[in-house]
Amino acid sequence: MQDEPTPEELTRGVADFLRNDIAPLISGHNAFKLRVAINALDLVTRQLRFEEGSDAAEAARLSQLLGQQGSLGELNRALADRIAKGEVDLRTPGLAEHLWQTTMDKLAVDQPNYGSYKRELGAK
């Protein structure tokens, strides 16, 4: 078992340091690049917090949908394959709900400020 602080605490700490102490000192194109870098650290922090739970739920939904077991990568490949072959489509019970939930979980990590995501979150 690795010791504390956790990766999430570390990435959050570094991002806060860059945001609060370094960003005010930087200008021009480097300021833009620094903002992008801080955004990347914030994304990693969100992924560290949410990934375990959303991956487990996604794998459970996929196993149910496909009637098979496997790693998350294998299950996603199997689903992609079945959609490509037309064996599964939006009329298949559970598919739309699964894709929506999976996509919402991705946006919660990738871009929680994206307009469409905020709209769908509010509509739930």
């Binding site: 990347a40 939006l90 739309a96 991705k106 990738d110 469409s116």
Partner: peptide
């Protein structure tokens, strides 16, 4: 470029937009 890396993480934005177009809730 970190900027490019982060644009890679915008592909999920198009997934939610595709769902809004093809499977609106």
């Amino acid at each position: 470029s970190i900027e490019r890396a982060m644009i890679g993480r915008r592909s999920s934005e198009t997934e939610i937009d595709l769902l809004r177009l093809l499977a609106p809730r």
